[in-house]
Simulated assay, not measured.
Amino acid sequence: MTNHNAQLAALVGSRICHDLISPVGAIGNGLELMQMGGSGGAELALVHDSLANAQARIRFFRLAFGAAGQEPVAEAELRRILSDLAISARQRVHWQVGGDVPRAQARLVFLAIMCLENALPFGGEIAVTRDGSQWTITGKAQRMLIDEKLWEALNRSGADVTPSEVQFALLPLLLEEEGRRPRTRIGQNEIVILL
């Protein structure tokens, strides 16, 4: 994937997320009106939970796959996205970084989180820290699933991946634009990604 193709893909991602967030939000408004009108029950609760999950995923994907610049993303927004996502996720993300973050950096970190989610399908903990300009994203779990082909893909651009693995191809490509590469350490119960 060339730089031009990556930018085009980011614009497509932004457009899809932008177009989905409005109707999904309208569904949420409709649910609130139904609840205020006395409707309820297990069925409505299930729809509400599914809606909250969809909204959280869209906001997460908007940062991970959307067009990014240097405008900041507020710390509160980053924490809110990850907190909302945790409601239905098997992995818990601990954001240990204070302050706002440039959107381009947040995108890289969110892609790294997605890579770790792939390796922690049975659940686990993901910690995000920063020391100066160095980001460290660490995943820990008692059981991990390591697809060596995917983790090797982080070391080169142009990897052959499926749609559910696109983060493994996109992350090194975006870092390459900055003249950098991700570094990884894989242990028995821990994976570290350094950006």
Rank of each mutant, 00 (worst) to 15 (best):
A67E: 04
E32D: 15
P182L: 07
R107P: 03
F122M: 05
L120C: 10
L174S: 02
G98D: 13
R185S: 12
A64W: 00
I16Q: 08
D147Q: 14
R181F: 04
T162A: 07
P172K: 01
M144V: 10
R107V: 05
R130V: 09
E77S: 14
A54S: 13
L82V: 05
L33H: 00
L108M: 05
D100R: 01
E43Y: 12
L154A: 07
W151T: 05
A112G: 11
N155G: 15
G99H: 03
M144D: 03
K140S: 01
A54T: 13
G30L: 09
Q55M: 09
S157F: 04
D160I: 04
T2G: 15
S133I: 10
E75Y: 02
A106G: 12
P102G: 09
A52P: 03
Q70K: 00
I113V: 13
K140R: 14
E152F: 02
A104T: 07
V97P: 09
W95G: 07
C17M: 12
N118Y: 05
R130D: 02
N5M: 08
G38F: 07
M1V: 05
L111D: 06
I87D: 12
E75Q: 15
F122W: 06
I21R: 08
R80E: 10
G132Y: 00
Q35C: 02
K140W: 00
